[in-house]
Write a protein that binds this DNA or RNA. Structure first.
Lengths: 228, 228
DNA sequence: CGGACCATTGATAATTGTCAAAATTCGTGG
DNA sequence: CCACGAATTTTGACAATTATCAATGGTCCG
């Protein structure tokens, strides 16, 4: 509970009251939390594990929009307007969630305007990320984008080691390609190239070692890509 | 005032009080309202005219993120967090704005939680647009994207005529290309192709006639591209 | 009417996607 | 702990798409 940023302005008593009315649900890896087009009736908060949010195009290609981790939430739009879900959310690992019903959420948000402000801030963060991603895709330099995502993941999923930063990838290579909007094979080739240039080292399908951080920074080009 | 959606939940008296504390400013075509990186001290609401919000990449390419029109606002992020502007905003025509200072905005939002909810909803709309745009770029079918933007503009900037829908473009061809993340020349060629297929007719640099709406819909592919 | 700006066209190069096959990695069961 | 089959990733060859550069043609507005 205390790890959820949007609820952090509440005091102990309020938190306790809310924790009483939250419902919980766990998901196995690969399970779908919500489907694009579903009608949502609650705000979902991730307590443990990562999920991916994505859309399918009509020709069956997957575009990953977000990786949500511990403390992230989704579904707020669907509670405030009568919109249905605009993306599918799938567990990348075993995931624990808690859910706040529509009416509870609306009560809460009117009682604590701070929560609305926190949500606006968090949505702002996401918009900045989307805007950066859109720019990356628009200016279309694939090398930049790969550098950018490696740096982003280094910060988000990396651990320091004597050899460099080891990234524990939340996504498969195919997933990363779907996030970047490129073909799996292209990503393979580019990563191979980076490895032969000594910037990274592919440990296995789930982790990459960054051996030349500065090199990646200059590859990424746009410093804004290095997201918090 | 009454045309600003986020303030629509206020009553006459409140609106009057706010209109007293708003400051106004007009801009000529081509003038910049805010620069990427600027520190913002007020919420800006567009009263008249269109503006484009864009980012430059390090190699000088422009990526347009939004076209804001009458009733739209920006700068809310910069008032709630200490973030600086994440894009540049430039007038596409003579533009009239009004501005609400940071402190006034914060007072207002705490007094009227409904406004926060309205802002969340509006941000949600923008996120859905960004998500769709990201998907369009990711799945990378340029024809789809062109069809999509023509339909979007038809709804937003079009007028019905006996011959079809005439779109009064807010952007030059170059601007549209920068919005779609493609080269100006590519857009030219694609539009020429659409014209020879009888789907559109280029009237002049600032307007396009849609002669085969259904054709465009099937070109666009993804029905979600057809935004409100 | 003229000049600046914007858009189109052509030729070519560069990049990335696609399909097919080989190699590697992963997880499970013995 | 090892081996095996499935899944994932890498590699290769080639095709398709789009960017780039350069030149031409049009449009807009004083």
């Amino acid at each position: 509970m205390h790890k959820v940023p949007i609820l952090s302005s509440l005091d102990q008593e309020e938190l306790f009251k809310i924790s009483e009315i939250l419902s919980h649900r766990d998901y196995k890896k690969g399970e779908t939390l919500i489907f694009d087009g579903d009608k949502l009736e609650s705000l979902v908060i991730i307590n443990e594990g990562n999920v991916k949010a994505y859309k399918y195009s009509t020709d069956g290609r997957e575009q990953i929009l977000y990786i949500f981790t511990e403390g992230d939430f989704f579904g707020e739009q669907n509670l405030l307007s009568d919109r249905t879900a605009t993306y599918t959310v799938e567990a990348l690992q075993p995931v624990k969630t808690c859910m706040l019903s529509k009416t509870q959420f609306q009560l809460l948000i009117h009682k604590h305007p701070d929560i609305a402000v926190k949500i606006i801030k968090e949505l702002g963060e996401r918009m900045v990320r989307l805007e950066n991603a859109l720019q990356s895709m628009g200016v279309r330099n694939v090398d930049n984008r790969i550098g950018g995502i490696l740096l982003e993941y280094a910060v988000k999923f990396g651990t320091e080691t004597p050899e460099g930063i080891v990234i524990h990838l939340p996504l498969s290579r195919e997933g990363i390609a779907n996030y970047l909007g490129i073909a799996r094979e292209t990503l393979s080739r580019k990563l191979g190239q980076l490895e032969s240039e000594g910037m990274i080292s592919s440990l296995n399908n789930k982790s990459i070692l960054i051996t030349d951080y500065d090199g990646l920074v200059s590859l990424a080009g746009n410093p804004e890509d290095i997201r918090i």
